[in-house]
């Protein structure tokens, strides 16, 4: 008797994990459904239709890998990928370095810290479109920086990055850094403030220099903060679009094209959904390739430890 009836009370006492916190789970049901239907469903639909010859309207006319073959055969796509690689690597390194350096400077208990913090953070309050237009004018040789410096008497001064296909991507980079560094600085500053004062005292007792303390002790301690900053910068890089549209329109020629712009233009201007879907699927692939090893290292490692 006891042996047979034993499992019942136990299962009543310990309901399955699915029904634990059921109120919270019901509350989050809309979000779960949104995630499943809109994000996952939309992604799956896009990937599926990237194998079709859809033009203006989605049509299930299968063409295999044709869209992908055409995509990787298109100069504009290759240029876009290269541009994103240059912009992305420069932006990633410089934003982290500048953001951390600014935060470290502010952390040295300087005067008017909050004023500086506000000034550095202000560009982030502007949209990319405003940033792009403002920097388009600042970098315009006839109205902006070049003409100002020339009017000071340095007649031979030349700074015209946006009209040269070889340098236009760095013109974008200046605007992107100006806009994005402030936020990263604030995140870094919050991380620095979270470091115990005793660490600094201990470092001073041991006679370790300030810079060395930052590099050897503080930065490794700020790993979570760096990860957060990294993810924010990376997502900003992948979706880079509005800055380019506002600042250069992809020009001169194709010199500042980016993948997101290729997707939008082929989906809507060229009325070729299949091609746009193929390009966006490739963007998804690149994100997944970066994301999976990182997620494995970050979360897989923690479970083991």
């Amino acid at each position: 008797m006891t042996v047979v009836s034993d499992p019942r009370p136990r299962s009543a006492k310990r309901p399955s994990r699915l029904f634990k916190n059921w109120m919270a789970k019901i509350a989050s049901l809309p979000m779960i459904l949104t995630a499943l239907v809109v994000f996952l469903g939309g992604t799956a639909w896009t990937v599926t239709y990237s194998f079709t010859g859809s033009r203006m309207l989605p049509r299930a006319k299968w063409v295999g890998l044709d869209q992908y073959e055409r995509l990787w055969d298109t100069d504009r796509w290759i240029i876009s990928i290269k541009n994103l690689a240059i912009y992305g690597s420069c932006s990633m390194i410089l934003t982290l370095v500048l953001g951390f350096s600014l935060a470290a400077c502010l952390d040295r208990k300087i005067r008017f810290e909050s004023a500086f913090r506000t000034i550095f953070l202000y560009p982030f309050a502007l949209s990319f479109v405003v940033t792009g237009l403002a920097w388009q004018w600042i970098l315009n040789p006839d109205f902006g920086l070049q003409s100002v410096v020339r009017s000071w008497g340095w007649e031979s001064f030349a700074f015209n990055p946006l009209n040269d296909p070889n340098t236009v991507i760095f013109g974008l980079l200046i605007a992107g850094l100006w806009q994005g560094t402030g936020l990263i600085m604030c995140i870094m500053l919050a991380g620095l403030r979270g470091i115990d004062e005793d660490i600094w005292k201990a470092a001073r007792v041991d006679g370790i220099g300030t810079v060395k303390t930052y590099v050897v002790v503080i930065i490794p301690m700020m790993r979570p903060v760096f990860i957060t900053a990294l993810v924010m910068i990376a997502s900003g890089i992948i979706k880079l679009y509005d800055l380019v549209v506002a600042q250069t329109g992809g020009g001169p020629g194709l010199a500042s094209e980016v993948p997101a712009k290729y997707v939008i233009e082929y989906m809507f201007r060229a009325q070729n959904l299949g091609q746009g879907f193929a390009a966006s699927t490739m963007m998804l692939c690149s994100v997944v390739i970066i994301l999976i090893p990182w997620a494995y290292l970050e979360f897989g490692g923690r479970k083991r430890g």
């Binding site: 298109t74 100069d75 020009g251 060229a270």
Partner: peptide, 12 residues
């Protein structure tokens, strides 16, 4: 529109 966009890209 697709072909036109491709020609425009080439010209750019």
């Amino acid at each position: 529109a697709d072909t036109q966009t491709q020609i425009e890209d080439l010209m750019a």
